[in-house]
């Protein structure tokens, strides 16, 4: 199949229909072929191909040296990854679930993130840390968290969260090519959610550029990852029930943040809802709200509304209440009109 290249808007790039999971797998294959410094490692990523299947076939195709299983140690995976990156490799480390990353947190915030700065630019850490995040999969406390804010609060890290198969591939390839450490957080709830056209072979999406997922004129919804399809459904509801024209901005990368696209949209609509599935307090949506309040308050015609997870550990049986859903987001949209 062919389609318009989503980046350039021109050309007839060849595409293939893929899930996000397949697109992520494809991105790693492309980069492992392109650059022999790229190595993929983590728990169960070898012969098994990952617990979700994102590394399927890599071990078979590239061998033990390029794709390998590690001992069960997040601290070791990330610490060794830092050493490999410093040495000159392009490590792609997988942390099986973002919930399990904390034993290696020190290696991310104290080491990877500060490498370039602390050595005056002598040493760098071009490592990608891939990890599935987020709820809606009956995963309970420890297979559901959305802890991107911790990483956004650490200068030196980039934080990337795709919401479509094509973006997942393009953003992952860009992350692997990036000169700095990247947290590549994968919305596992939509790994197999929808198939989409994904460019075959080379495909990059620039880090730091948001995507207008849907154009609208009345209200802006800011979201990322698995919340994007939720917000799309909410936009349909708001249109049907109240005739609201909703613009959806998919942030794609939280760091670096595309403030320009956010502010342009907010200034156009005068209303904004910020949607994230992490606990409400201290979440990245608070940062987005503050940026808008600082830089576009004179354009606002209603309150900046947050729709988020709860200030609780992630629940098991009641996750349907915890997770923002189309109804909650649609209610949030109405709050910007009626308050």
């Amino acid at each position: 199949m062919t389609a318009t290249n989503p980046q350039t808007g021109k050309g007839q790039a060849k595409t293939k229909v893929m899930t996000m999971l397949e697109a992520i797998n494809d991105a790693m294959k492309v980069e492992m072929r392109n650059d022999d410094r790229v190595v993929v490692f983590g728990e169960d990523v070898g012969k098994k191909g990952g617990v979700f299947g994102t590394t399927m076939g890599l071990h078979e195709q590239f061998g033990d040296n390029r794709c390998f299983d590690t001992p069960l140690s997040e601290c070791g995976i990330l610490g060794a990854g830092v050493g490999m990156a410093v040495y000159g490799m392009r490590p792609v480390a997988e942390i099986q679930f973002l919930d399990f990353i904390y034993p290696g947190f020190d290696q991310i915030v104290s080491e990877a993130a500060k490498m370039r700065y602390r050595s005056g630019g002598e040493y760098t850490c071009p490592m990608v840390i891939r990890s599935p995040y987020g709820g809606g999969i009956r995963g309970g406390h420890y297979h559901s968290q959305s802890s991107e804010a911790y990483f956004c609060h650490t200068p030196g890290l980039k934080v990337v969260i795709p919401s479509t198969p094509a973006d997942a591939k393009g953003l992952l390839i860009s992350s692997i090519r990036d000169e700095d450490p990247v947290m590549f957080l994968e919305p596992k709830a939509i790994y197999r959610h929808a198939k989409d056209e994904v460019p075959v072979g080379e495909h990059t999406v620039e880090l730091g550029k948001a995507r207008i997922a849907r154009e609208g004129t009345d209200v802006t919804v800011l979201c990322y990852g698995a919340m994007v399809p939720v917000c799309e459904k909410a936009a349909d509801l708001a249109q049907e029930e109240h005739g609201r024209s909703v613009e959806i901005v998919d942030l794609r990368t939280l760091v670096p943040l595309d403030e320009h696209t956010i502010l342009e949209s907010v200034k156009k609509t005068g209303r904004v809802v910020v949607v994230y599935e992490a606990p409400k307090t201290g979440g990245f949506g608070g940062e987005l709200s503050a940026i808008i309040a600082e830089k576009a308050i004179e354009y606002m015609e209603g309150p900046i509304v947050r729709v988020a997870g709860f200030d609780t550990p992630f629940p098991y049986s009641l996750e349907h209440l915890y997770m923002p859903d189309p109804k909650r987001v649609a209610a949030g949209i109405e709050k910007t009109f009626v308050w």
């Binding site: 060794a80 830092v82 050493g83 490999m84 410093v86 040495y87 490799m89 490590p91 290696q107």
Partner: peptide
Amino acid sequence: ISHATGAAMA
């Protein structure tokens, strides 16, 4: 310590 290991692995 793990950086030394990682560099040696590389």
